[in-house]
Simulated assay, not measured.
Amino acid sequence: MALIDEIVSVSEGSLEAVVAIHPACQFAAQDGVPVWVGVEYMAQGIAAFGGVLARSRGEPVKIGFLVSARRVSCAVDSFNFGDRLRVVVQEVHMPDDGLATFDCRIVQDGDELMTARINVYQPADPIKYLEQGL
């Protein structure tokens, strides 16, 4: 499931992507997309950042897992049809053990609609990790 429409920029430790909200979006309701889907937009921004980083190192893109979303703050109840959301993810901590933390924002026309601190985990061998059970 890919919800991000476009990667706009990638810089040291950060990525900015765009999500266009329209009636055919996954998770679209009658009046728009519920704000809780924003956590997934953020997680996919982090995944895109990880994929870009892996490819820049000549490595394959690996599966990652959303561990937690903390300090979630929402200024809206839903994202409206016609919105063009900027999803900004900024690396806070990314050690070599696969566990990473990102500060994330969703912005529309300069207004911050949602923020969160997201923790993710990218095991060295995701298939083995899944076979061991969670």
Rank of each mutant, 00 (worst) to 15 (best):
G13N: 04
A116N: 13
G98A: 03
G64R: 00
R86Q: 06
D83N: 03
N119K: 14
M42G: 07
V18S: 11
P60Y: 14
L134C: 10
A28T: 01
D83R: 01
V72K: 12
R57P: 11
R86Y: 13
V52D: 09
D111L: 15
R86N: 11
G98Y: 07
F49E: 15
D125H: 05
G50H: 03
G110D: 08
F79C: 06
A69M: 06
A43L: 08
R84I: 08
M114N: 03
F65K: 00
L130V: 02
K128G: 07
Y41C: 08
I7S: 10
E112A: 12
D103Q: 14
V107T: 10
T101R: 11
F81M: 08
Y129K: 14
L85C: 03
Q30D: 13
S9I: 13
C104G: 12
V88D: 01
R71W: 12
K128R: 14
P126K: 02
G98S: 11
S14P: 09
F27Y: 06
E112G: 12
R55K: 03
R84M: 11
E6V: 08
V8L: 15
V10Q: 11
A48D: 13
A20M: 12
W36K: 12
D83K: 04
C25I: 00
R57V: 09
L66G: 05
F81T: 07
A17S: 09
R57H: 04
I118C: 03
E6I: 09
E131I: 15
L99C: 05
G13E: 01
V72S: 06
I127N: 09
G32S: 05
V39H: 08
V33H: 02
V120N: 04
R117D: 00
P34E: 11
V92L: 04
N80Y: 09
A75G: 05
D109R: 14
P123V: 04
E131M: 06
M1C: 08
A100T: 02
G13R: 06
M94S: 15
H22Q: 13
D97Y: 05
V76Q: 06
P123I: 04
S78F: 14
A75T: 02
R70F: 12
A54C: 07
F81W: 02
I118Y: 01
F102K: 02
R84W: 10
L53Y: 14
G38W: 07
E6T: 08
L15W: 07
M42F: 00
A20P: 10
L66I: 01
G38S: 08
A124N: 06
R70T: 11
V107N: 12
E59M: 13
A54T: 02
E59F: 01
A2R: 15
A69G: 07
P95C: 00
G64V: 00
H93P: 05
G133L: 00
P123R: 05
P126F: 06
G13D: 03
P95M: 05
E16W: 11
C25E: 00
L130Y: 08
S68P: 01
A124D: 01
R84G: 09
N119G: 14
A47K: 12
G133Q: 03
G50A: 14
G32D: 04
S56R: 12
D5Q: 08
N119P: 10
